[in-house]
Structure formats: structure tokens, C-alpha cells
């Protein structure tokens, strides 16, 4: 009886210690925004932005989190440089006028201690719109090689680029852009 009480107390204490929100730093080698959009309804154009910069606060026990992350719009990379230069122009990303795209989210949805979705606001090309990113994978694990705890996952969302004023080429090049976000963050 006494043992059970002691162990409950210990668990509660341990829980309290873990429950403190932790500020994670993004791993720049595993944090990118990939995008996909359909070309003439036929094949998928892919590219990436990144690495993502910013901070993630995560409290898995309390089921809360907050993030404020950004990518440089000029970092767009499709594998074909003239195409990248074209995407940076004023009628698409307008990277000179809007060098950063930013995602700020304070609504973290958990199932147990697993993060399943993050809802926040995306600011792109000076336009702010709500964005929901659903987790396809999420896990925290001990990375023995680096002797650190890493939380990370794959998150997916969709935007209509015309809503952000980047409508060039619609409908031949799709309005709907699928975002595939890889993120890993290291517990300090």
C-alpha cells in the first residue's frame, strides 16, 4: 500500500517534471517544406523550401504546443534554376518584396501523447490565411548516435496559391498546392 502510494507520488513528480514545456530547436538537416502541384493535369511538379528556421514549444503531457517557424521564399528549389528564378518573380512568390513565409500555430491536437495536427496561420506573400497541417508520422525518440532526444514527423497540408495572390499559370499549373513538411527538433 505504502509502496503503491510512493510509486504514485514518484510518477506524479516525474510527470510534473516532464510536463514542463520544452523549447525544441529545429534540426536544419531534417526540416524542409516540400511542395507538389499538378502540371496540365498530367504530372506532378515538386520542389522544396528550407531549411525551416524557428522554434517549437512542446508539452506532450499537457497536450499543448506552440510554434513560430519561417522559410526564406528565395530558397525555392525545383532542380531547374530558370524555373526557380521564375517562381521568385513578382507574379508568383515575389521574393524581393516578401522574403519570408511564416507559420505561427498555437493549436496543437494530440491523441494521447502523439501530435496529430497543428492549426495556425500561414503568412505568404503578405497574405495571412489559416492552415491545418496533419501529422502523417510523429514520434519522439532517443537518438543514440547524438545522445539527444529528437521529436519529429511528417506533416501535410494544402493551400490554394491564388488565395495568396500567386495565381500565374492557373489552371494549366494547378491552383492547389500540397505541402509536405518534414520536421525534426532536438530537445536541448
Amino acid at each position: 500500500m505504502r509502496l503503491a502510494l510512493a510509486s504514485t507520488l514518484l510518477c506524479a513528480l516525474a510527470g510534473a517534471a516532464v510536463a514542463e514545456p520544452v523549447v525544441y530547436g529545429l534540426d536544419p538537416t531534417h526540416s524542409f517544406v516540400n511542395f507538389e502541384l499538378l502540371h496540365f493535369g498530367t504530372s506532378t511538379i515538386r520542389g522544396r523550401f528550407g531549411p525551416i528556421e524557428g522554434q517549437v514549444n512542446l508539452d506532450r503531457v499537457a497536450g499543448r504546443g506552440r510554434l513560430d517557424i519561417a522559410v526564406a521564399t528565395a530558397s525555392v528549389s525545383t532542380g531547374w534554376r530558370p524555373f526557380d528564378a521564375r517562381i521568385r518573380e513578382p507574379d508568383l512568390l515575389d521574393s524581393d518584396a516578401f522574403p519570408q513565409a511564416r507559420f505561427v500555430a498555437a493549436e496543437f491536437r494530440f491523441e494521447g501523447d502523439l501530435l496529430v495536427a497543428v492549426r495556425g496561420d500561414l503568412t505568404l506573400r503578405g497574405v495571412q490565411r489559416p492552415l491545418l497541417l496533419r501529422a502523417k508520422h510523429f514520434a519522439c525518440e532517443w537518438r543514440a548516435i547524438l545522445a539527444v532526444e529528437v521529436c519529429g514527423g511528417d506533416f501535410e497540408g494544402e493551400i490554394l496559391r491564388s488565395e495568396f495572390g500567386a495565381a500565374f499559370g492557373v489552371p494549366f499549373v494547378a491552383d492547389r498546392v500540397r505541402l509536405l513538411v518534414q520536421v525534426e527538433a532536438v530537445r536541448p
Binding site: 531534417h30 515538386r46 524555373f83 514520434a139 519522439c140 537518438r143
Partner: peptide, 24 residues
């Protein structure tokens, strides 16, 4: 059409996220 032909690959990075790359 080399501007619309590319090979992307995905590999799981341990148990957390998916790393992507491509051949340009």
C-alpha cells in the same frame, strides 16, 4: 522534357520523419 522529368526519393529517417531528395 528535362524541365518536367525528375526522380524524387523518400527514405524514412529513423522512426520520426521522411527525408527527401531528387536527381536533377
Amino acid at each position: 522534357d528535362p524541365t518536367h522529368t525528375s526522380v524524387t526519393f523518400e527514405v524514412a529517417h529513423f522512426g520520426t520523419s521522411t527525408s527527401r531528395g531528387r536527381f536533377e
